[in-house]
């Protein structure tokens, strides 16, 4: 029985094995950190809604204020999806026979809700308050992106805890005068100087804290 002898090239292979062996764990770690991060797994969520409502048309081209439909946003934690009545303020007349609006008309007649799909869902253990943010100068655009340019709404931000904390730790780059909160087309950091934004932080006493109980109750 002949003994196994390592071929001559196996000596030269050793450095390669070491290099690959060093890179492989790094590769796996980075891949998991990048690929399993909320930005990859949760960002850009774009469900198909029961009615093809276009924010780009209503909020963008027609320039309707966010609050025309989401009228609870300044007073309540939850920014309400409007009742069918709000759609029918106009659509009893405009596009009143459109097949796209069939479900809206059905809902109007039967009183059954349209089953819109929630795009911006945070974990059930997190209690985000819309009113607390928009009345003190955090614009819709900070979390929802340029909804006024979206034909179909998608998640522009990961809505992860780390992402929330990014702003809670550095609010100055995310506040604007409260009267401009619903003007999505204005960019926060380029429209208002850092001094102006620091002034707002002082004026409205904005000190977002990082206590667990702020968001988790």
């Amino acid at each position: 029985m002949s003994r196994f002898l390592f071929p001559r090239w196996s000596n030269a292979l050793l450095p390669f094995v070491l290099v690959v062996g060093a890179i492989a764990p790094l590769y796996v770690t980075l891949l998991v950190a990048y690929g399993f991060s909320p930005k990859t797994l949760e960002g850009q969520y774009q469900p198909v809604q029961p009615v093809p409502f276009s924010h780009a048309l209503h909020a963008g081209k027609l320039g309707m204020d966010c609050r025309y439909c989401h009228n609870t946003v300044e007073n309540a934690a939850h920014a309400a999806v409007p009742p069918t009545q709000t759609c029918m303020n106009c659509h009893t007349q405009i596009h009143r026979e459109s097949p796209n609006l069939a479900k809206v008309r059905d809902s109007y007649v039967t009183g059954m809700p349209i089953e819109w799909i929630k795009v911006h869902k945070v974990g059930d253990y997190a209690y985000f308050n819309h009113a607390a943010h928009v009345t003190r100068g955090v614009s819709c655009v900070e979390c929802h992106g340029r909804v006024d340019q979206m034909e179909v709404v998608h998640r522009a931000q990961p809505l992860s805890m780390g992402w929330c904390l990014g702003c809670h730790r550095n609010p100055v780059d995310h506040v604007r005068p409260p009267e401009a909160v619903f003007e999505l087309w204005k960019d926060t950091t380029t429209t208002w100087s850092k001094d102006e934004r620091l002034g707002l932080i002082n004026r409205f006493d904005i000190h977002p804290n990082e206590y667990c109980s702020t968001c988790h109750r």
Binding site: L31, T40, G43, Q44, Y45, K121
Partner: peptide
């Protein structure tokens, strides 16, 4: 895999979160 993840981060999709 990294390219696929990069694409996921940049493309809206109904298959998430």
């Amino acid at each position: 895999p990294p390219v696929a993840f990069a694409r996921m981060r940049a493309t809206p999709s109904p298959n998430r979160p």
